[in-house]
Amino acid sequence: MNRIEKRLALLEEAGHKAFITYMTAGLPDIERCAELIRVQEEAGTDILELGIPFSDPVADGPVIQDASFRSIQKGTNLKKVFDMVEKLRTEGCEIPLVFMMYYNTVSFYGLAAFAAKCAAVGIDGLIIPDLPYEEQGNLKKVLDKTSEAPILIQLVAPVSKQRIPMILKNARGFVYCVSSMGVTGQDATFHKDILQYLQKVRSVSTIPVMMGFGIRTAQDIMPMKDVIDGCIVGSHFIQLMEQNQYNTEVIKEYITTFKNEMNGVK
């Protein structure tokens, strides 16, 4: 069973929400990035999104743009990230891993080769923000033919409206609800109709509903906690790691606190 689906099933059983983080792969360098993944697995991050740096990250705000740029400067590329993941998996790391990447990186690698490599090293999901439903056909065909292929995670936006049932048909893993219009990391300025929108997704979705973009603390999501099954923290998490020189204690503390507060554990 896919690691994402397995983890989400366990959480559902326990009545807990999922805590998902995003980090740009290759920061502060590829070795320490691998270490940070282990630290997060230990601290209880449920699913980890690894951002594959791209030169033109149009779906990202300034924090992830900057992280992406620095990672490329350090020589990070898809091949090195695959190697890192392969090594982690051999060492027994079992945290569900999702690649967040732009479609050009997939297309450049070659769709079939990419799907096969993801399956081989143990990538569980893909989030591709510039690959909307209508353009997913070619990739889906390839993923369907690959055994143990990663799940193509579907994104919905506050303006998706009538598109939601179409997008969610056959969707697997979880649905990624973008909390605001535009790009990642906008400091809890969620869309004005956020609740109605999430309720609409909730009413259609047969899989867990996650909210991402602009979330910093568990308080940010309190007004929506009854309609979501978890959340994704990206830009804020990157800033937190940067500002604390990737101090693992600070990272663990943040994850534990967020999870406890989100799940109402005192």
Partner: peptide, 22 residues
């Protein structure tokens, strides 16, 4: 969606937020 393509070029590779707009 074929109207959005010139042979294998073109398409709409944008975020979901923009699909209704397009």
């Amino acid at each position: 969606m074929s109207e959005s393509y010139y042979g294998e070029y073109g398409g709409q590779f944008v975020s979901e937020s923009l699909m209704n707009t397009l």
